[in-house]
Design a binder for these strands. Sequence first.
DNA 1: TGGCTTTGCGCAAAGCCTTGCGCAACGCCA
DNA 2: TGGCGTTGCGCAAGGCTTTGCGCAAAGCCA
Lengths: 332, 332
Amino acid sequence: MTEVARAAGVSVSTVSHVVNGTRLVAPKTRERVQHAMRILGYQHHPTARSLAAGSNQTIGLAITAASNPYWVELIQGIDGEATRAGLNLIIVDTRDDARHEAAAVANLIAHHIEGLVIAPAVGWRDVTLPLLRDHPIPYVVVDRIDPDLRVDQVGVENEAATAAVIDHLIALGHTRIGMLTGIRGLSTSSERLRGYHVAHQRAGVPVDVDLLVDGLSTSDGGRRAAWELLELREPPTAVFAANNNMTIGALAAFRAAGVKVPRDLAVAAFDNFAWADLFSPGLTTVAQPSAAIGARAVQLLLRRMNDPGAPPQAVRLPAEIMHRESCGCPTR
Amino acid sequence: MTEVARAAGVSVSTVSHVVNGTRLVAPKTRERVQHAMRILGYQHHPTARSLAAGSNQTIGLAITAASNPYWVELIQGIDGEATRAGLNLIIVDTRDDARHEAAAVANLIAHHIEGLVIAPAVGWRDVTLPLLRDHPIPYVVVDRIDPDLRVDQVGVENEAATAAVIDHLIALGHTRIGMLTGIRGLSTSSERLRGYHVAHQRAGVPVDVDLLVDGLSTSDGGRRAAWELLELREPPTAVFAANNNMTIGALAAFRAAGVKVPRDLAVAAFDNFAWADLFSPGLTTVAQPSAAIGARAVQLLLRRMNDPGAPPQAVRLPAEIMHRESCGCPTR
DNA sequence: TGGCTTTGCGCAAAGCCTTGCGCAACGCCA
DNA sequence: TGGCGTTGCGCAAGGCTTTGCGCAAAGCCA
């Protein structure tokens, strides 16, 4: 930088201002500086800038690196929006475990990130949240949002979307609808469960709690839970799986049991995925606007970074129902 | 740090050495320093360290952020190994496009990364490779490896794995085996194609080039290519899809055409995925050791960073064939 | 005890940029 | 032409560590 300044006949500070556009520089001078930079092949040094500016233009993302299209799209949304805002993004894997999550977040904090987007793991309130309280760093919660918490958060309309799907199943004549609920402690799980109840209530259909089985949000849990449903004295005529993984497990169970979908059993599920179209029959799913959720999270984070005192905002984005054949409708 | 030094009655440099373990410090002194750090709540500042050390302990990864389990596992492998080595990882999305890739890599270079892992896009030799030549930064290529290039690279045994699957199909009596080849210009594509030829050759089965159709490595391309095969005057009795996406497209096409797998047509594919088990029938696939590939790549990178003059090494990891029903075998 | 190797630590430069403060030149108006 | 507001730029401090070099104390052997 010094060399550039010398070559352009200006001071280092002027070069800095040209590089960053941080204050008016006479066009002629600016041109001289830029020319000098080109000639000398000047390379900006972000690390030094970070140190000098006391800011590294970096935000962190704490998320589970699961092989799930939903997460990938979410990450893409966050990354895209961060890039647009001129922010770098560092991603850490929480392994969907609160203790790992806390360690990962501590790591991010040590790197002096200026903001954090977090998709919390079960139990985060006890380990990670305190960490965030100690270090006054702006953050926003995505996906597993928690209405009780007065923080910025972005998620999907779990309740409404689930209720809409259940409505549909009820409209098709089902009165015994099984549900594979997600792991307890996740707000997404309880909200989707609530949607189930809401739909039943407004249709005047009583809920048989035997039809609600915990699939632990995993593929294996889904498989087991599906078997439980099939072995009920009075099995359901339709099943709703509250996430991706459980859907996979459940479908495997149905297939193993020789249960034909949708002839013997109607099926619908939360979380859309590319393969949903390919199963026989095509799977009726709830598609989350993952990328939009991610983008919105970054926007909220920016707002908070600029205005730490702003009132917390909880955003819900609508989901889209991908209507295919597994619910028993003649055609999509 | 100055304060800590004062409190402990040592110099700043000693504090630094205690923090980093970069040279012997008498146990008594070390204890004093650590105590002072605790009392004062000293927080290390990685950015300042990067500046001072002229190194930021960061490596970059340029990869397409596609929603594909293979990539996710690869990233996990790289990230895990990097963490183990005490390196930070910055990921950029190439969007699988050479020009974006070049920009992304330039960005990484601007961030003064010390090493790069790259899963190159088609056409990278013309735009990204020159960039890498200009800036003498250690790098290793993963996945799309290029035997002509004298650089460190890690990939799977595409040829052998493909040949093994084709062997199997031939052993089952198929002599007209269609193949959905990947996009031209990708080494993975040509290697898998070569595997196809090798298997035919050693079995003495002639190859009908009409059976080789370009699926462009995409889902849509796979769909179209599959249709082409079905519409052949003399259609194949078995089909091998050279990647994940094309498999999805092809299966959709077969289903739309009313072709039953494996009754009417045997199917096998490169790239394993969680859902492979759930299709009716289960899909016979080639599973890549993605995580291992990623880990190995980081190891090669470390070696090169430590010893820039070392001879380039090309590593091939074996694939595993996941034998399911779609190939027409009675049972797995 | 004298000379030599370890061991332990401090000094100060270096790394690269940002930014508050202040000064000078310039233009405009009365 | 004097006074005042802009515009344009430089000075120098500041941010936090790392590390080469050199010095002193301690340990060891003859």
